[in-house]
Amino acid sequence: MTESVMTLNVGGTVYTTTRATLLKYPASMLGSLASHDLPSTRDKDGHLFIDRDGGAFKHVLNFLRSSQLCVPADFTDLDLLAAEADFYQISPLIDAIKEYREGILGRKGRLYYLEIIEVRTGSTATMPTSNSRVKTILLGRKDVLLTLPPAVIGTDFIERLCCREPLEYTELELFGSPVRLRVGEELANLGWTLVSSNLSTSSGFDNKSQVGMSLIIEHTFRDRWCREFGLDEPIKANPNHTMMLEEASV
């Protein structure tokens, strides 16, 4: 009975299993190691030593025990595990990882993006004050824009969107102050994620100024937002827009 138990030191982590488990797939490296077909290295305690990732080996060993790939729902080391499966040459595990990866890709939803572009022009341009001009634009696909509530796209969007096709990308000018901050908060509350925010600056002189040459500064803020819709999740217009859309189509 004692001879059937084997202890392995994998990258500093010690595992105890049976020879029969390691022989589950005889053509694999572990199968050859258990059947003494491969020369082995031992640590100071006499355990078989394998210079590989010790944490990942528990998933390899569990697969040998059950023939099933069992990893946590938030497992993030799939590439590492695939490399270990390849090293140990366990073909069924390689296939199981491939199938699991394809399943993950199949479960992913559809990603959609929106952009908020705000341009501030003036002698300082850092704040929307009386000596600056502010223009804010929301860009996105028409059907995605229509999922947003009036607090985001306003109530006068019909004239600007009714002539667009649902899948057509378009832009809406947003009004109010500070509209970029307000819309950003609304999007975050609706499940959108800010993926990037950039600022570019340019400057020049206003030759038409009544008081001589004056410096004009332009700041352009660009926020990019993203949201994942489920594969079966419909892209439906916000209920607050339904009546207006129906009236516009008559």
Rank of each mutant, 00 (worst) to 15 (best):
D143E: 05
D95C: 03
Y112P: 00
L187W: 05
A83M: 13
R141F: 00
I153R: 01
A83V: 11
I97T: 08
R101W: 06
A83Y: 04
L172H: 10
A125V: 11
E118N: 07
L181M: 03
L146V: 02
C162A: 13
N131V: 14
R120G: 07
D156W: 01
L167S: 13
T126L: 12
D95H: 01
L145A: 05
V119W: 04
Y88W: 12
S91K: 13
K135N: 14
S91H: 10
G176V: 12
F157G: 08
G154W: 01
P150E: 10
I90K: 09
I90E: 07
L148D: 00
E185M: 08
I137H: 04
A151I: 09
T121R: 10
L167R: 10
L181R: 12
G140C: 02
I158F: 08
T155Q: 14
E171T: 11
P128Y: 12
K142I: 01
R120Q: 13
L93K: 07
E185H: 10
I117Y: 01
E102M: 15
T155Y: 05
I116A: 01
K108G: 13
G154P: 03
T147L: 02
Q89N: 13
P92F: 02
C162R: 10
V119T: 14
A96Q: 04
E99W: 00
R110L: 13
K142Q: 10
I153G: 01
S177I: 15
Y169G: 06
L145G: 08
L167I: 04
E165Y: 03
E84G: 07
P149N: 05
V134G: 00
V152E: 03
T124V: 12
R101A: 11
L111N: 04
I90Q: 10
E118S: 11
K135Y: 12
L139T: 08
E173C: 08
D86V: 12
T121Y: 02
A96S: 09
V134I: 12
G176P: 12
K98Q: 05
V119Y: 05
L146G: 02
L148Q: 06
V152W: 03
P166A: 03
D156V: 11
R141A: 02
F157H: 12
E171R: 09
L105G: 09
L111P: 01
G122E: 10
I90S: 08
E99Y: 02
C163E: 11
G176Y: 09
L187R: 01
F157E: 04
C162N: 09
S130G: 12
Y112A: 07
K98I: 05
T124K: 13
A96G: 03
G176N: 12
P92Y: 02
I158W: 06
Y112G: 00
K135M: 11
T155V: 13
R141M: 05
P128Q: 11
E115Y: 00
P150L: 10
R141H: 00
E165M: 07
L148R: 05
L161I: 00
L167E: 09
S130Q: 12
E173R: 09
A85I: 02
G184F: 01
E159H: 15
I97S: 07
